[in-house]
Design a protein around this nucleic acid. Sequence first.
DNA 1: TAGATTGTTAATCGATTAACAATC
DNA 2: TAGATTGTTAATCGATTAACAATC
Lengths: 205, 205
Amino acid sequence: MDVKTIPDIVVGRLPIYLRALQAMLDEGRKVTSSQELGERLGISAAQIRKDLSQFGEFGKQGTGYSIDFLAEQIGAILKVNRVWDVAVVGAGDIGSAIAQYQGFTNRGFRVVMIFDKDPEKVGAQVGSFTVQRVEELESLVQEARIEIAMIAVPGAEAQSVADRLVKAGVQAILNYAPISISVPEGVHVQYIDPVIHLQRMTYYL
Amino acid sequence: MDVKTIPDIVVGRLPIYLRALQAMLDEGRKVTSSQELGERLGISAAQIRKDLSQFGEFGKQGTGYSIDFLAEQIGAILKVNRVWDVAVVGAGDIGSAIAQYQGFTNRGFRVVMIFDKDPEKVGAQVGSFTVQRVEELESLVQEARIEIAMIAVPGAEAQSVADRLVKAGVQAILNYAPISISVPEGVHVQYIDPVIHLQRMTYYL
DNA sequence: TAGATTGTTAATCGATTAACAATC
DNA sequence: TAGATTGTTAATCGATTAACAATC
């Protein structure tokens, strides 16, 4: 079939482009160019054109890109032209904050359930959700056919939570616990650890 | 002087190494090798050795690395063998969660103040902090000689908050708002936007 | 000593940039 | 038409990997 694989680093930039395009739409803009987008993001115009060319031809010579159209196309490539249901595990400060995060709206995601193992928290309300017993994780996640989850439990528990999520059919995990987790081939993991980002900057201070 | 510059991508991996080393220490381990560390992180042993060799010789042939010593050295390189005071701007769900985050302990950072512009929030308690008026931002940040801040305000306000932080002397910003911000040369910015990470994974689902 | 593992060099691989014909 | 900007190729640049002498 000879299907060329898209480099991971290119896929990783698409969400950045999409976010900028949506910001431009909010500003009422209609058209942009690789140069403008690049200046806005600190990325070279050539790189943006090269990245996009991996997926098709979305622009017009002399004119640039229709923001609306390009956003639509990138959304389709990333499969976020739909809404993905997401489960949150851990109802502490971080889990509660992300469960209620307004920023998922219109960007392809919706939190639909939250779990905790603490009996004190189970049954409590977090925004519009009732915290579920973590014992129900497998059955509820599986039944709802949820493929994406966010882990917001202490580091020591993150691996076992990940194992349970995978067993329940989850294929993409966003891990807020400050620890590397191992998952089977084919399951995707991304990490959010503020300390990693901060330490990366202190080097230069 | 001919000082070789360390590639940014190498600096970016050091915090990952450090986190893994500290986890090993917690497990009571004393010695590790580039191979073991690499397997744990999904990074090649050669790359780890190459990265570390940019800064010095930290291992022993035949033996590997003293975990304690290597963690110490990387901490020193990253300048996190001290505690940096951090300001948080925005006392919503996210700002409150990061202000109280336990994970900064022993990793080089300590939140010392939190601001909000909402008069309803100003004066309220967030953990052990009293929310400060954002009007006091410049004076309080400057007086405390704070160099690092985290932004957790709505996207529309992030740029103006960043401008004020920079004016107050902040040189490193961790931005939780889902928007690119521009800062003067020499000021560092890192981003945390869960949607970016999620969209990066949906491509593969 | 024999085995293991580092630090480093050279080779390979991959990503970015520059340049420009095509064309709106 | 003249000017602008794309999509793409080739050149450059940089990062990763393989291999191995040094040595604990």
